[in-house]
């Protein structure tokens, strides 16, 4: 398994997609800082007015935006809660897995590793590592942006930050397991990427939720990856705040098991 993990990391290091996806994340963070700056700081509002981007009557509202924000809130707003992070990370995972099928290198892997569950294990670990790097480096960039925009928002409590990044990592790794499952089942980059798009945007969850809540059966939505990632707590207060971790781990186990079955059943 660790041989395979080494192989995956070697490829990630030399691939374009891992850097492009990371660049997209940074771009989104930068843009959201820019937007908040334009809408909520006196200097930014001046510029925005000049550019005609901001109507006069919204100046006060804009300033209110910043009242409760901190660095962590900025990080969540700039992509985490909206599913932008899941999307880019999901696309990276899809490209990582489907690359093995596309050129047929899978034949080399599978003739060497007859115990095919090893493959899923290594992919999960690679995705977990990539996720960790994206989250931590993304957050570091987020703090850097705050510096650049002259401490627009106050720093966040480090315990809250660690707590948030921790459960967000578990949940998004669970999401990666879903993407891995889709790729192993379909062996198609297109399906993997589409899965990342629909899964991350919560489109399917919301659609199903709106249907089931017609029958007052919408309670399940609180146990989805999408819901927990978007509405999860920013600081630890009670045991209930660990629901995201539990949901993430449950989906991680479920999708991984399904992937193992899928990869063992089918011929290459």
């Amino acid at each position: 398994m660790f041989n395979l993990l080494c192989m995956d990391l070697y490829r990630i290091k030399r691939s374009k997609f891992a850097y492009v996806c990371f660049g997209c994340l940074l771009g989104v963070i930068f843009l959201s800082y820019l937007m908040v700056w334009l809408m909520a700081t006196p200097k930014g509002q001046e510029t925005a007015l000049k550019l005609g981007m901001l109507p006069l009557n919204e100046l006060e509202e804009g300033r209110a935006l910043l009242a409760e924000a901190d660095v962590l809130a900025m990080f969540r707003e700039s992509g985490m809660d909206g599913g932008m992070y899941s999307l880019t990370f999901g696309v990276a995972v899809a490209l990582l897995v489907c690359g093995d099928y596309q050129g047929g290198f899978m034949k080399n892997i599978m003739s060497l590793h007859r115990q095919r569950q090893v493959y899923i294990g290594s992919k999960l670990m690679a995705a977990g590592i990539l996720n960790f790097l994206y989250l931590t480096l993304g957050f570091a960039f987020n703090m850097l942006m705050n510096q650049l925009f002259r401490h627009m928002v106050p720093a966040s409590d480090w315990r809250a930050t660690l707590f948030y990044l921790g459960w967000a990592w578990v949940l998004t790794t669970g999401f990666a397991a879903l993407i891995i499952l889709l790729c192993v089942l379909s062996r198609s980059t297109t399906i993997g990427v589409l899965g990342a798009v629909f899964g991350s945007s919560g489109l399917i969850v919301m659609l199903l939720h709106s249907i089931t809540s017609q029958f007052h059966l919408g309670g399940w939505v609180e146990y989805t990856i999408y819901y927990n990632l978007t509405y999860g707590p920013s600081a630890y207060a009670s045991v209930g705040d660990l629901r995201g971790v539990a949901v993430g781990l449950a989906f991680l186990a479920l999708y991984s098991a399904a992937s193992v079955v899928a990869v063992r059943k089918r011929d290459i």
Binding site: R11, R14, S15, Q102, G103, G104, F105
Partner: peptide, 15 residues
Amino acid sequence: TGLYPNMTARQNMMM
């Protein structure tokens, strides 16, 4: 041949 199209011969071998 099963290979990664975006890698060189040596990189494929390294993989």
